[in-house]
Design a protein around this nucleic acid. Sequence first.
DNA 1: CCAGACGTTGTT
DNA 2: GTCTGG
DNA 3: CCAGACGTTGTT
DNA 4: GTCTGG
Length: 399
Amino acid sequence: MCGRCRCTLRPHDVSRGRTLRHINMDRYRPSYNVSPGFNVPVVRRDDGKDKGEEEGVVLHCMKWGLVPSFTKKTDKPDHYKMFNSRSETIREKASFRRLIPNSRCLVSVEGFYEWKKDGSKKQPYYIHFKDGKPLVFAALYDSWKNAEGEVLYTFTILTTSSSSSLQWLHDRMPVILGNKESSDMWLNGRPTSNFDTLLKPYEEADLMWYPVTPAMGKPSFDSPECINEIQLKCDESKSISHFFMKKGAKGEKEHNNEDKRGHMKNDESRSLKEEKEVDIYGTQSTSNTNELDIKPKVLPPWEEPVDSRLKQEVDDFPQFPAGMDQHPTKTDHTASSPERKKIKVANNVGTSGSTKELPEEKHELGAFVYTTKPTTPVKMKGKGANDSQQKLFAYFKKN
DNA sequence: CCAGACGTTGTT
DNA sequence: GTCTGG
DNA sequence: CCAGACGTTGTT
DNA sequence: GTCTGG
């Protein structure tokens, strides 16, 4: 994958010293935190037209995130939909297939970011070449004309499976053209060429990486700080262990049943700096074990845990029939009057209810009959929702 | 014939 | 634009 | 890709 | 969680 990168290169670096004709380069803004929708310089062929151009190659600033030429003129361009394209399937996909013969281009960046997922936690890493030279990505571009007649050039970065050394971080990586031969082939190859040999994971040992501040996750955070290496926090269990160690008596019961493998996993990096010593015994200084975030247990309604008492109450309800997604009304026909026990529940919450007229449908479930029909939505969360409603909301979120 | 799609990623 | 599906 | 929101009627 | 916005 490749959804964020650093491109602070000078135009001269992108064109590798060649003097190329510039197109829209005034739009280029170097950035440590480039995301889809940004203008990025790409190198592409410029055959056909002006014959006098050097090398038939231009340096063209385009927006990252492909908007196919057949996109409806009235549509709002969405650069996040196709900022990547799977190299394995570009020959099959209508949006990419037609670009392979004559719309290949090269994207040069100093490095890119990848987020490692650990359960619900995400840690960004910066990946770059050991010697700092630019990474050259294989890309495809297209142009689209909007309703005003303005032409928009966009590109998509090809992806492939990850190299063996990056597999731990992510299962996809951008297609990196690691030498002049391969980048020349992608740029200058004949329209009918088979480019399969280029569209492979980059397996050489000169790709390096290290963890960076999670603050760069915000697309507006553009600063050299994005690529500063950070010291990863210790493994959760270790931190907790230290927390208890400090408070409790030192000679007390040891926390021996913790996962002892955990802290090694989080320390993956391959950086220019000296190899870090592996802290096998967890005796590393606590100096970087920053303040433990002890959040007060005040959660917004949509994160509130289900109250066990109410959950029990709701669990007594039979499951909704499959496909029921309207606001059902439950009627307990075991009661003497059908109207006596009518409880409205909602399983699509947070929106103002459906207004379309739907026929009433009945679903029998044991002693109960569920009736689906458009009703005023039950307020389930936020200010104004009562306690019971919020708990119901939590319940339905869980199921 | 016309209508409709046309994409990747990840997965709490 | 071009392919697939009805 | 990640960040950020997640809400409305009627009127105390 | 899930949707929208950048």
